[in-house]
Design a protein around this nucleic acid. Sequence first.
DNA 1: TCGGTCCCGTTGTCCGACAACCAGACCATC
DNA 2: GATGGTCTGGTTGTCGGACAACGGGACCGA
Lengths: 245, 245
Amino acid sequence: MEFRRLQPQPAYRQVSAEIERRILAGALKPGEALPSEAELAAGFGVNRSTVREGIRALESEGLLRRAAGKRLVIAAPRAADLAPRAARALAMQRVTFEELWSVALALEPMAARLAARHAAPAEVAALADTIARTDAVLARGESPAALDTEFHALVSEAAHNRALLLSREPVGALLYPAAEPLMPRLPQANDRMQAAHRHVVEAIGRRDEAGAELWMRRHIVDFRRGYEMVGLALDAPVAPPARPE
Amino acid sequence: MEFRRLQPQPAYRQVSAEIERRILAGALKPGEALPSEAELAAGFGVNRSTVREGIRALESEGLLRRAAGKRLVIAAPRAADLAPRAARALAMQRVTFEELWSVALALEPMAARLAARHAAPAEVAALADTIARTDAVLARGESPAALDTEFHALVSEAAHNRALLLSREPVGALLYPAAEPLMPRLPQANDRMQAAHRHVVEAIGRRDEAGAELWMRRHIVDFRRGYEMVGLALDAPVAPPARPE
DNA sequence: TCGGTCCCGTTGTCCGACAACCAGACCATC
DNA sequence: GATGGTCTGGTTGTCGGACAACGGGACCGA
């Protein structure tokens, strides 16, 4: 005799699931407003409190966006909605430098290649600007970690590939800040980093896909070498991402 | 005169943020139970309804897990919690085959390489089993798309890299089901797929990193070729992922 | 044209209540 | 002694109703 595990879902989950189903089915399109909470409650035949609980989940996933005090609006979740959660999840799992680095070694060169293929002039300019700002920060003796993270994020934006953007973002957000302790102990690492960044941007600027990919790969490999050289453990978990205040 | 955008957050968000903060800070560790809703409400000085709304968001992120009707337990979000959301987000953004394929081309060979380095015997056996089950399905003339997806998921599990697992999963969940319409029109594609899968597993089994990576790369490149050959558009959005019922 | 005022719909929050459910303790029966 | 029943307390899930805060639109007066 076979028993299928029966799972009565609480009402608030059914509300989430149903609204999500309708959005996915296309009955509700991004940009459209959801009915008011009272209408939803009446429609589902549950209390408004229950609807509100159900809505919160979708809201935190970026599927609904709420303009303070206004009606809820359907939205297509963007990388910015999901990446911080993913980064946090990885940090909580105590992901190691080695794990992150392996993914970066696969994705970053691809990002550079695609950026060389698709980057708009404004994006190349933004990359150059980040390099310049990094120069300024280094001249003041401060840490370039945040700008390093930004540089790589900009490259993957310039690749115009949303799947790549989403896959890469949490990795970059954890990996590059891990370079923080590297700077004081390995001063020449900054020069090498800036040189590599410059080569990447130049290659992107002249639409040299192979060159962009190659320099990015060298840069990532070099990053690991620097990390090892100062005696940091590759198999130690990285620090959780800094949270915006 | 400078104004910083002031953003009074609703109470339920402050509750989410505060609980999340405590978890991240380590005051509450995975496995531990959260105080009861009534206690939290008393502690924060808000109503229980407000606490419940705040909790829903964390729950949907996998940070809290709720054993039906029992106290909430802190958990470290796993890839399985986040990947479906990511896949859905990509589908809603109407990501194209080309975008997904580029990421797969970067990640899958790396996954195969790392699997060759780290796979446990049981994992190699599971891979072989999936190939056998695919043979059976093909013999019945059915579509191997689901098993193809599973095969690649197993390879990346065998890589023992949690960052890779999280980055790759949503891509695989969307990309391989896109092969569905390919089968009837290109019968030999299945043989090529199975042959490639076999080569990958063999290479993993003998710890041949280069071989595993190479065959996986060929397999991915071949996939795109098949997709083009049957006249499917590379720049068309892929179908949203099937939802488990 | 600008600012003020009023009204109305909607959200955010609260309160109090109760059924459903789980776990554990305790007890009756065989 | 093992099995199953009953009771009880703590917790969650859901409900109904209530009200302040706020945004937006309409309307009005300077």
